[in-house]
């Protein structure tokens, strides 16, 4: 079972890294992050911080673009092009297919995130020849990466039953909502109606809380207070991703292919 999942993951990884559009996005992202080097000349204030802030935001945005771009066609491409016919006629179970595809894309995203973080780290380090080696960049990027994996799982879930365009819309909506869920919680709690409070709480727990992976500010303002926040985020990612993947597998298990 694991061997088949890894084979599919390896193939997905190969598929994504042979994708020219991914390289275009990555190249542009690296360019933008590299350009933050000159940012300090244009602004006042704590230059190193600005570099880190803008750089991390770039990593975040380009990461989301890559995850969504690759994730929304992860499953639907195979169904549309009928390549899945051959895969599933082999001794491959459908959940192995879903897990393998998601795993493969996660590896690709790991490499692209790492590349972006490294460039940012180097820019920061070389800033005016006196920059610090800011390990926080990698820690914050780890959070971004976890968020990307979760978005990938969501995109591939949508990809099992709808078109790429709708998958992109759903995934991006969840991305936006996922960063705002705490307001939902706060707003809901102000309601006088018990049912509304419960409903808002229910939705709060149902939606992905992507702020769990956001340590950009902590990192920028004097470092992460405790590493337990990383562990908590990883646990949340595993639990939430497992639920999403299981749902994908359920939806996919008895799907008829056209």
């Amino acid at each position: 079972m694991l061997r088949r999942i890894f084979s599919i993951a390896a193939n997905t990884f190969r598929e994504t890294i042979r994708n020219k559009i991914l390289y275009a996005i990555l190249a542009f992202a690296l360019f933008v992050i590299g350009m933050t080097f000159f940012l300090a000349d244009l602004s006042v204030g704590d230059f190193a911080r600005i570099i880190a802030d803008v750089g991390l935001a770039s990593i975040h945005i380009f990461g989301v673009i890559m995850a969504v771009f690759l994730g929304i066609t992860l499953v639907s491409n195979e169904v549309e092009r009928k390549t899945i016919y051959i895969l599933l006629s082999k001794p491959v179970r459908r959940f192995e297919f879903i897990f393998g595809k998601t795993l493969g894309l996660s590896v690709t995203l790991l490499l692209t995130t790492l590349a972006m973080a490294t460039v940012l780290f180097l820019v920061h380090f070389s800033y005016r020849y006196g920059g610090r080696a800011e390990v926080g960049i990698f820690i914050a990027s780890a959070g971004i990466y976890m968020e990307l994996v979760l978005l990938t799982c969501l995109a591939s879930l949508f990809s099992t039953f709808t078109t790429p365009v709708l998958s992109a819309i759903f995934t991006l909506s969840l991305f936006l909502v996922g960063h705002l869920t705490k307001y939902l919680y706060v707003l809901g709690d102000q309601s006088k109606v018990e049912a509304v409070r419960w409903a808002s709480r229910f939705i709060f727990y149902l939606l992905p809380n992507l702020e769990n992976f956001n340590w950009k500010n902590e990192v920028a303002y004097g470092g992460l207070k405790s590493f337990s926040i990383l562990g908590w985020a990883a646990g949340y990612l595993v639990a939430y991703a497992a639920c999403v993947l299981c749902l994908s597998c359920l939806l996919f298990a008895r799907k008829d292919f056209k």
């Binding site: 193939n11 190969r14 598929e15 042979r18 994708n19 092009r81 009928k82 390549t83 016919y85 051959i86 006629s89």
Partner: peptide, 9 residues
């Protein structure tokens, strides 16, 4: 399959 199609890459 009918008109088999494979990974182009």
């Amino acid at each position: 399959p009918e008109q088999p199609y494979f990974y182009e890459y």
